[in-house]
Design a protein around this nucleic acid. Structure first.
Lengths: 247, 247
DNA sequence: GCAAAAGTGTTCCGACTACACCCATGC
DNA sequence: GCATGGGTGTAGTCGGAACACTTTTGC
């Protein structure tokens, strides 16, 4: 037990404490329903470390700013989105996770609080400021990422798959109006296509009663036109926080 | 703010960044099977802020120390436990969550990464160093806590209830050998007693096949003696990461 | 014997699976 | 017409809920 019997003169004790800068990194997912692809938002780094590499959009937390505020700020700098879902993911804070730690003064450490976000593809307008590279990448094709962002991304992807099974996050990425096929395709592209029969999936969800049929039909090429549905948050409320299965 | 270099943009930019100390706070649960109570470990604070109040055991992260290392260090300072379960909970980092922020030098902020731990009551020996108050509190009777520890505790309790339903955390708090009643009681004390019929709970768990009957009988007062069971981690392995229901 | 606690069995019913089948459109 | 995708129906089966019942102990 070091530091216990050695009575803490303020500096022997505080000398051991690490000083931190705190960063926020966002794993932002979206889905292109037309092409049926799961997308993640990446930005090109222009400064060292890792200049010229893709990374998750992130920033360092400013004075007086909460973690969540910082997360929203990064988002707002990169995309103009209407509704979005945001939740904290995990905090990565081991020493040596950021190259700046070694060369920078006095061993300041960099800690990353990661956030998980979902936005609607159609409503999300990327803010291109001319220089900064920013792009939706299909999850299958993400390039090598800066820092430990690969790990953070995997963590976020796992969270997405889990949440898909027991919470209505799908409706955060789908457009306001969607067909049941859209919904089903979304599930299959993210969870793999052996998770359930389409017709069973369909009747299970409809029976729950929080999908409202607008009556509007939409035709996509050949085949019978599909009804457009809307997610009814009020009708879903009773299921909130209850064990609930979408699988 | 040493290391601030003369480059103008970097200077104005970095001036806005917050400087942090990072703390780790542990929500440590245990269960007294004899009295059937859910317990949480609290320590008495001896220094300001909040001197004389109970709080979650925590510490500030030292140089070269990872977050998890810090979490284990606090634990090791307070209790001598054999096996324990530890996972990261949530990170609380808003400004003004720690009174030291205001008066302390240069507006350093205090961020708390909380961890969630489970230990076996019988195997956990509290390290009493004479002065420092440290005690297991029944969850129903926790006193007002320092900082935002009340909120962290609630967060940890929610996590516990959730994990209980789909993962074998119960066996981390139960003794090595336990009766099926012990297990059932544990579930009822944490989840409330309307979650399942005892006989159904029993047959469901036994059918899964990862509870091994040692054949040893134990008698507790009146009534038929119960078999002692042991959790078989190998037999559980196939269920690992699968959707699994203990409810 | 009786109460208390552990353990077993049985019936009922709803939900999920796996299909087969019908409907509306483009070409 | 026929291929294509959307939508409906049904028979079989599995598993959970509820509850009655048996077994083994202390007193």
């Amino acid at each position: 037990m070091p530091g216990r019997k050695a009575k803490k003169t303020a500096d022997t004790f505080s000398a051991q404490l690490a000083d931190f800068k705190v960063g926020v990194d966002n794993v932002i997912f979206s889905v292109d329903t037309a092409q049926n692809r799961l997308l993640v938002l990446l930005v090109m780094r222009h400064e060292d470390p890792f200049a010229g590499q893709w990374s998750l959009p992130g920033t360092l937390v400013r004075k007086g700013e909460s973690l969540e505020d910082a997360a929203y700020r990064v988002l707002a700098e990169k995309i103009r989105a209407e509704n979005l879902y945001l939740e904290q993911l995990y905090t990565f804070g081991g020493p040596n996770r950021d190259p700046r730690e070694s060369k920078s003064s006095y061993g300041v450490r960099y800690l990353a609080v990661s956030y998980f976000a979902l936005v609607r593809f159609a409503e999300a307008e990327l803010i291109a400021d001319g220089v900064s590279g920013i792009a939706w990448y299909p999850l299958k094709q993400v390039p090598p990422l800066a820092f430990d962002h690969q790990q953070i991304l995997e963590y976020g992807y796992r969270r997405l798959r889990n949440k898909l099974e027991y919470s209505p996050v799908a409706f955060e990425v789908l457009p306001e109006l969607f067909t049941l096929s859209d919904l089903y395709q979304l599930y299959t592209t993210i969870l793999g296509d052996n998770f359930s029969d389409y017709s069973n999936f369909r009747s299970r969800l409809l029976k729950l009663g929080f999908l409202h049929d607008t009556g509007v039909k939409v035709s996509r090429g050949a085949g019978r036109p599909a009804s457009l549905y809307r997610f009814d948050a009020d009708a879903f409320a009773p299921y909130k926080d209850k064990p609930m299965v979408f699988i």
